[in-house]
Simulated assay, not measured.
Amino acid sequence: MEVQREPVRVAVIFGGRSSEHAVSCLGAGSVLKVIDRAKYDVVPIGIAKDGRWVLASEGQRYELEGTVLPTVDEAGAELALPSTPGGLTVLTPGSPPRVLTKVDVVFPVMHGPFGEDGTIQGLLEMAGIRYVGSGVLASAVGMDKAFMKMVLAQAGLPVGPHLVVSERAWRLERKRVVDDVDELGYPVFVKPARAGSSQGISKARDRGELEAAVEHAREHDPKVLIEKAIVGREIECAVLESLGDDPPETSIPGEVLVGGDHEFYDFDAKYIGEDMTLVAPADIPAEVAEQVRGMAARAFAALGCEGLSRVDFFYTDSGELILNEINTMPGFTDASIAPQLWAASGLPYPDLVDRLIQLALDRPSGLR
């Protein structure tokens, strides 16, 4: 008689304390729609904006409604963080604590600080729970654009001219910072060093616009990155860890085209309206496409990434490729760039979700 196995229990964790809370909810909503319920027992777990963990409602739709972004419903039963391997405790007012059935793997659809930056990965490592995506170090380095660029440059990958402004430097040495930006050359893009989804980014064309741009970035992160503007086409490539010992796979490259009144690929262009188009495959020479894929795989290896990533490039009129950044947990709705690139490469979104869960299950927890 065949023994019927229990389905694998997958906790989809989303929300969080960062300014990318809504983006995380959007991605989780897409994952919850397509995950194979015959294969997986799914537990949606939301992290409220104040950091509380709650059992999220299966019935809530985590999607854009007009221009209204979704958020975690805080009315669910509160959860205590893992204290034993694989376990979560449900805290219901007026009732004794109860242990949630053991979680086999976590899919952390988390973006920004307190989630994508190695913090939740460290928590899951301590609890002995497998999870989708990169480990603690790769997640932390990938989140901090200043250290990311250092690692990429050390690996021999081309990065653009930039400088880093600490909270202390901006407060005590502002004139020196401004002089350094003069030497870097305008225009520049000013962005939070540890944020994503184009949150807090603005363009400064001269000294007069610089201070406001830095203060805008500091609303998201006291550490600021200032990059010399690079004129070029925006080329994207997704990377996916292989099952087994094969090298990571790369998608066909795509090109991001931004329309409307957007001067660059900002938050509204990414998530609100229809001002962004992804052309996949990108209309670039075959040898350039291969170079993009090779550099994307090298960036993935340089950071020690696992699971998935998306690597962003500029392709200049002179034919130069400059690596802008790597995202260890890129936007993950079915309409986001990385899933679209994989769909165009022959891996549909539901299969991508399944592949990532299988990769996580196949990977040991702890040091590796």
Results as ranks from 00 to 15, higher is better:
Gly15Asn: 00
Gly185Ala: 02
Arg194Tyr: 05
Val141Tyr: 09
Gly273Thr: 08
Arg355Thr: 14
Val311Cys: 07
Ser242Glu: 09
Leu361Asn: 02
Gly27Ile: 06
Ile120Met: 13
Pro7Thr: 01
Ser345Pro: 04
Val109Gly: 01
Ser345Asn: 02
Val54Asn: 09
Ser30Asn: 13
Pro281Arg: 08
Thr277Leu: 13
Leu341Thr: 04
Glu125Trp: 14
Tyr62Asn: 04
Glu320Trp: 10
Leu323Arg: 06
Met126Leu: 15
Val141Phe: 12
Pro339Leu: 02
Ser95Phe: 14
Pro222Gln: 01
Ser336His: 05
Glu306Ile: 07
His21Gly: 02
Pro108Asn: 08
Gly142Tyr: 09
Glu325Phe: 07
Val353Asp: 00
Tyr265Cys: 06
Val3Met: 08
His162Trp: 14
Val214Lys: 00
Leu26Pro: 06
Ile252Gln: 14
Glu78Lys: 10
Asp73Lys: 04
Gly294Leu: 02
Ser24Pro: 08
Phe147Trp: 15
Glu74Ser: 13
Ile252Gly: 12
Asn324Gly: 11
Ser345Gly: 06
Ile252Pro: 10
Ala282Lys: 03
Ala75Leu: 13
Gln291Cys: 03
Ser166Arg: 01
Val132Cys: 13
Val90Thr: 03
Val214Met: 05
Ser202Gly: 13
Asp36Arg: 10
Tyr131Leu: 13
Glu306Met: 14
Thr92Gln: 08
Ile129Met: 15
Ile201Ala: 02
Pro339Asp: 01
Gly200Ser: 01
Ala77Leu: 07
Val23Asp: 01
Glu58Phe: 15
Gly366Ser: 10
Leu367Pro: 11
Leu184Val: 08
Glu325Met: 08
Ser365Lys: 12
Gln60Gly: 11
Ser139Pro: 05
Leu257Ser: 11
Leu32Pro: 11
Gly307Asp: 03
Ile284Thr: 00
Gly232Gln: 03
Glu167Lys: 15
Ser336Trp: 07
Gly185Val: 00
Gly260Trp: 11
Gly128Trp: 10
Phe114His: 09
Asp266Phe: 05
Gln340Lys: 14
Glu116Asn: 06
Glu167Tyr: 12
Asp36Gln: 10
Pro330Asn: 06
Leu26Glu: 03
Gln60Ser: 15
Ser18Ile: 04
Ser242Leu: 05
Cys237Val: 11
Leu225Phe: 00
Val12Gln: 07
Val311Trp: 06
Thr316Arg: 09
Thr84His: 13
Met148Gly: 10
Ser83Glu: 15
Leu308Pro: 00
Asp41Met: 08
Ala217Asn: 02
Glu116Asp: 03
Ala302Thr: 01
Gly208Glu: 14
Gly16Trp: 00
Leu55Met: 11
Asp144Asn: 14
Lys270Gln: 01
Arg194Thr: 12
His21Phe: 04
Lys102Gly: 13
Val353Ile: 14
Lys228Val: 10
Phe189His: 00
Leu172Thr: 14
